[in-house]
Amino acid sequence: MSVQLDARPPVAAAPPVRPTRSYRLSRFDARWSPYLYIAPFFLLFAVFGAYPLAYTLWVSLHEWDLLGTDPTFIGAENYTRLLADVDFWHAVVNTLGIFVISTVPQLLAALWLANLLNRQLRARTGWRMAVLVPNVTSTAAVAIVFGVLFGREFGMVNWVLDLAGVDGIDWKANRVASWVAISTMVDWRWTGYNALIFLAAMQAIPRDLYESAAIDGASRARQFWSITVPLLRPTIIFAVIISTIGGLQLFTEPRLFHAGTNAIRGGPSRESQTVTMYMFENAFAPYYNFGYGSAVAWLLFALIAVVAVVNVLIIRRLGTGAGTRPGGRKGGRG
């Protein structure tokens, strides 16, 4: 038995195809261009965010008066001294009091206002633009105007209270009254801003959900609590976090509200001195203790983080249960 061999010569392998320059550029662009696009943010954050944050932590471990002397390492002494400082805790109570009085009504009013602007109103664009006017107004101008409105002798608020038979209030010398006055100022300035954020999120909700709920007989209030609020939960969490950061860093409004020699102290007896004002008082004029002021800043950072996490957990729980009835059934007829 003979075996016939293939007499054809072997086929030579094709030479490898080298990728062209345009192909290599396209691969490089697809893989690395996203990182190049976002690199400027991280570079700026590293220079103006991360480095100052780390440097402030280093400074908080030193004694430094900023007047030409070299910083002296003292460890955690600034923090232990700060935790025993009565004036610091007084400022913390003021900050939390103003934050609660201003932020909670502000977000509720913004949610109601956004729901109102989301309806078919005449001149809706004009109303939506009008609610943003307080936010673009100068903070200094707003603080001066409200300082006059809440004046003790000739303020319009005390004049209205006098018409109602209520004795005038010394808004700048009474602790709780100064909280209310400053909170009113903050609410007036920021409610419209949060309302527009909520309005933008409301307009992204499909209208057929409301139409189906209306066919099922759900009232407007039921639609709001069972459809709008649950679907707005991510936006509400965002607004709560932003309001928490801004509310706990309050400085300009109480500083200008108490115009005069005791402005940085929040009044003669520190009636409305916030943590940021206390930090400025110690880090700069009149004490120039930069290490102690840096310790105040880091404890304020920790306070903001704790309050923000607590608020997010509360909002998540409220948003989860907003669309359910007792027994676990979804909201139907209202």
Rank of each mutant, 00 (worst) to 15 (best):
Y51M: 08
G165N: 04
P286I: 12
G293K: 01
R27G: 03
F150Q: 09
D187E: 10
I98M: 10
P286A: 15
I169Q: 02
T235G: 04
A213M: 13
A54N: 05
R333M: 08
V186Q: 02
A214C: 10
P254A: 10
Y287I: 12
A305W: 03
D85F: 00
R175T: 14
T228Y: 00
L5H: 08
G260A: 03
L196V: 15
A141K: 11
L313N: 14
Y193D: 06
D216S: 08
F251Y: 14
V275N: 02
W64R: 00
A213T: 14
T139S: 11
L300I: 07
A181K: 05
A109P: 02
W298N: 08
E253K: 10
V240G: 08
R255Y: 15
L250H: 06
D70F: 02
L67Y: 03
I227V: 15
V176I: 11
L5M: 09
I242E: 07
R317D: 15
T56K: 04
A12R: 13
W89H: 02
L66E: 09
V100A: 10
V306R: 00
P52E: 03
S33G: 05
R81M: 04
F301L: 14
G328L: 02
R27M: 09
R265Q: 07
F150K: 05
M202W: 04
Q203L: 15
G155R: 02
V92M: 05
V47A: 13
Y55C: 03
W171M: 07
N194S: 13
E281T: 14
L44E: 10
S226V: 00
D162N: 14
T137N: 11
S102V: 05
I242H: 11
N174D: 13
Q203I: 12
A239G: 11
L96T: 04
P19M: 01
I237S: 12
Y193I: 14
S183G: 09
P286M: 14
V131S: 04
V131N: 01
R233K: 14
N78G: 03
N78W: 07
T191I: 06
L248P: 03
A204G: 15
H90L: 13
G75Q: 03
S243G: 13
A213V: 05
I237F: 05
S272I: 11
G247S: 04
P286N: 09
T80C: 03
L300S: 07
V145I: 13
Q120W: 06
L44N: 03
A14T: 13
R189M: 15
G291S: 04
W64Y: 12
A263K: 10
W188A: 09
A200K: 08
G327D: 07
P16M: 08
A84D: 06
T184A: 10
V166H: 06
I205F: 00
F48W: 11
E63F: 03
R233D: 15
N289T: 01
L196P: 08
A30R: 04
I242Q: 12
S183H: 07
E153T: 11
G165Y: 00
G68A: 04
S178L: 10
L53P: 09
S212V: 12
P9M: 06
V133H: 08
I205M: 01
A12S: 13
D29A: 08
L96I: 10
F41I: 09
A50K: 08
M277A: 07
Y278K: 15
L318V: 14
M279L: 14
F301D: 11
E253P: 11
A143L: 00
M202N: 04
V148W: 11
W32N: 09
G97W: 01
H62C: 09
T95F: 00
A164N: 07
I38R: 13
